[in-house]
Write a protein that binds this DNA or RNA. Structure first.
Length: 324
DNA sequence: AATACGAGCAACCGCTCTCTC
DNA sequence: AGAGAGAGCGGTTGCTCGTAT
């Protein structure tokens, strides 16, 4: 028996999301909360698959998402966690709450894979050069023996950790829950950022009129949108930012565009919810779970080891990667 | 200036897991 | 116990943009 598709394929829109769709989705989640995604397309009028809505929310619109370049520290954490957990992007993302699994996955595939490959090639070449020495042979032999012992220990530890982490999933979901329970206000910041990007792209590349520029123009200028529906401007006579402000009840959009402020924009209710969840979390985890220990270890190691000029070339991945 | 090519990233697809009845 | 629905996850695709030729 085959499964029913998650959405009716006929009439379902695909491709990039427009700001209007983002706004519709965010306002829906603001009112009803994240969840019951199947109901989202019908209740919002979005002609999108429920999965698409969930993905859009979790990857781009949800509060607390950090975009842009990855820091050295984040990079190292990803490398270490990938070595430890494999391609468990969601698990890795739970240790980097500001990053989405999709982001991490993309970053790994596009940047880190190449970097590590290059490093491994470099390391191989340098070891070939060294191997001519008898003393080197001796050293590498003893080192190899030591590494084999270490590898056995690490494999055992890794297995135990892996099991523990899979058992600890409620803790991971708590992290996500905490983010979800916080105010949705910063979703508007995400949208604002997206919109700013759209505006930039629509002004810088006039040819890019297939989707984004048309839609953003519909919202930001007096011209009517290409699909014939009246623009926000023509409807209500207010600009995009004003429309968003009025929609989300923000006093000032400009004042809340930094990345670390989403607690600042939190409503008292949302803050209360957050506190409540934290309280529950504390009660629930009176005994420190293994994943916390791992988390602390990762963070400690990173904060301790990272020097201002520290980068991947100093990171001893080659020393550890083969152990896993 | 036009074209080809590659990198980066957003989004989709299909499978698996979990929960409910 | 098992079927169905919803949600989550990882792999892959395809579009856009920048750069090289």
């Amino acid at each position: 028996m085959g499964r029913l598709p998650c959405c009716d394929k006929v009439g379902v829109k695909k491709g990039p999301w427009t700001p209007e769709e983002d706004i519709m989705l965010v306002s829906y989640v603001q009112q009803h909360g994240a969840g019951n995604w199947r109901a989202v397309p019908t209740k919002t009028g979005l002609r999108r698959c429920s999965k698409s809505c969930r993905l859009r929310w979790t990857n781009y619109l949800r509060p607390g998402i950090k975009r842009g370049n990855f820091t050295d520290q984040e990079e190292k954490m990803i490398i270490q966690l990938q070595a430890l957990l494999g391609n468990k992007w969601a698990a890795i993302a739970s240790y980097l709450p500001e990053r989405t699994d999709n982001d991490i996955k993309n970053y790994w595939n596009t940047h880190l894979k190449k970097k590590l490959k290059k490093l491994q090639v470099d390391d191989h070449l340098s070891s070939v050069e060294k191997n001519g020495l008898t003393h080197g042979d001796h050293l590498s032999n003893s080192r190899g023996q030591w590494e084999r012992t270490l590898q056995a220990d690490i494999n055992m530890a890794k297995k135990a950790l892996h099991n523990a982490l899979s058992l600890e999933s409620p803790h991971n979901s708590n992290i996500k829950q905490e983010v979800n329970a916080s105010t949705y206000a910063s979703s508007t910041e995400n949208i604002a950022r997206l919109l700013q990007g759209w505006m930039r792209s629509s002004t810088s590349s006039p040819n890019n009129s297939k989707t984004s520029s048309n839609n953003i123009n519909a919202l930001t200028t007096d011209s009517s949108s290409c699909d014939g529906t009246p623009s926000a401007e023509s409807k209500g006579g207010m600009g995009l930012m004003e429309a968003l402000e009025s929609l989300f009840g923000l006093e000032s959009f400009e004042s809340s565009t930094s990345d670390d402020q989403f607690s600042q924009t939190a409503s008292p209710e949302a803050e209360a919810t957050k506190v409540e969840i934290k309280k529950e979390e504390n009660e629930e985890h009176a005994e420190v779970p293994l994943s916390d220990i791992l988390e602390n270890w990762l963070l400690d190691e990173n904060t301790l080891n990272i020097q201002p000029k520290d980068d991947l070339t100093n990171f001893s991945f080659d020393e550890t990667a083969h152990l896993f």
